[in-house]
């Protein structure tokens, strides 16, 4: 559905996207993770025609963004993180205005408003001013405006920011329904990693303007379990253990990702434990969580940033 090849974008001296390549399949919910400044917003801005790319190729539903931006805009919709509507107008007036902006008139306009309000479960508050809405209702109105065109692709930028856990769960279910029932392709960015883990079929981690990792969620979560060794006392051995690459030293446990370096790492750890008479209490295999992977991939970035500063 979306094919990005060698995409580049710079702002002044900042290289926001560096040779970024990405494929997003039709009908899937694609999670885009990355710390602030990783390039998520830049990427979404380019895909929505808000910013212009410097180089690279972007195809959306086989339309080239350079030649067919108008056609792309007709099949996609952006739901910004901010409440991008007019708070002092009613929900209906907001939907009416944005439907007109999208070129709808007469009965079609009314039908689209009805569809968007029903889908986002807003019908009961259409005549209320948006300023009186709770955070959850504001998010629904933000979503409803994006649904007016019944888009093939929906870009959701932090769609649950600032809402309570119950509302968030409902919103997530509704977003999933959009994918399963309406067949929409959804590009989803969020700071809540558990949300991405829950809702997305495919996850990409953006790192310094490039894709650090892009996998199906099942592959990603199943691919690197960690072996955790629980011990009685690490006070003496800790300085020596901390020098070992790939080993995470916690309070009273040592965690080694089950990667290619697992055996080599274990061969270095065990002699140190024996030498300092550290007693092993328990050994467990822990399945990876998206958060662990994200933190692991983001860590070098933080270090780099610090050095650069």
């Amino acid at each position: 559905m979306i094919s990005i090849d060698s995409l580049n974008k710079s702002y002044d001296n900042h290289h926001a996207l560096k040779d970024l390549s990405l494929q997003i399949a039709k009908g899937e919910i694609f999670g885009l993770l990355g710390i602030n400044g990783a390039g998520k917003t830049t990427l979404i801005s380019i895909l929505n025609g808000i910013s212009k790319k410097d180089a690279g190729t972007v195809l959306v539903d086989q339309f080239n963004i350079d030649q067919d931006l108008k056609k792309i805009k007709r099949i996609s919709s952006l739901i910004p993180q901010k409440f991008a509507f007019y708070p002092t107008l009613t929900a209906y007036q907001n939907l009416e205005y944005f439907a007109a902006v999208n070129g709808y008139t007469g009965n079609t306009l009314k039908q689209r408003i009805h569809y968007a309000a029903e889908t986002a479960r807003l019908s009961h508050v259409l005549e209320q001013k948006a300023t009186t809405f709770s955070g959850g209702l504001k998010r629904r109105l933000n979503l409803a405006i994006g649904l007016l065109t019944q888009p093939k692709i929906l870009y959701l930028d932090e769609p649950t920011a600032g809402v309570d856990p119950q509302t968030r769960a409902k919103l997530l279910d509704e977003i999933r329904t959009l994918s399963t029932h309406e067949g929409m392709t959804i590009v989803y960015t969020s700071h809540y990693i558990e949300e991405v883990e829950y809702i997305c079929d495919h996850v990409a981690i953006l790192h310094q303007g490039n894709i650090k990792l892009c996998e199906k969620k099942e592959v990603l979560l199943g691919r690197a379990p960690t072996i955790c060794i629980k011990v009685d006392d690490l006070s003496v051995a800790r300085p020596m253990l901390q020098t070992i690459d790939g080993l995470e030293v916690k309070h009273n446990s040592l965690c080694i990702p089950k990667s290619d370096h697992f055996e080599a790492c274990l061969k270095m750890v065990l002699p140190i434990l024996l030498e300092h008479q550290v007693r092993i209490i328990d050994i467990q295999q822990v399945t990876s969580r998206l958060e662990d992977i994200f933190i692991q991939l983001s860590r070098p970035l933080k270090a780099d940033t610090r050095i650069n500063k």
Binding site: S45, G49, I50, K73, F98
Partner: peptide
């Protein structure tokens, strides 16, 4: 509020 960005999209 991002409305202009939305309108531009």
């Amino acid at each position: 509020f991002g409305t202009l960005e939305r309108l531009q999209s």
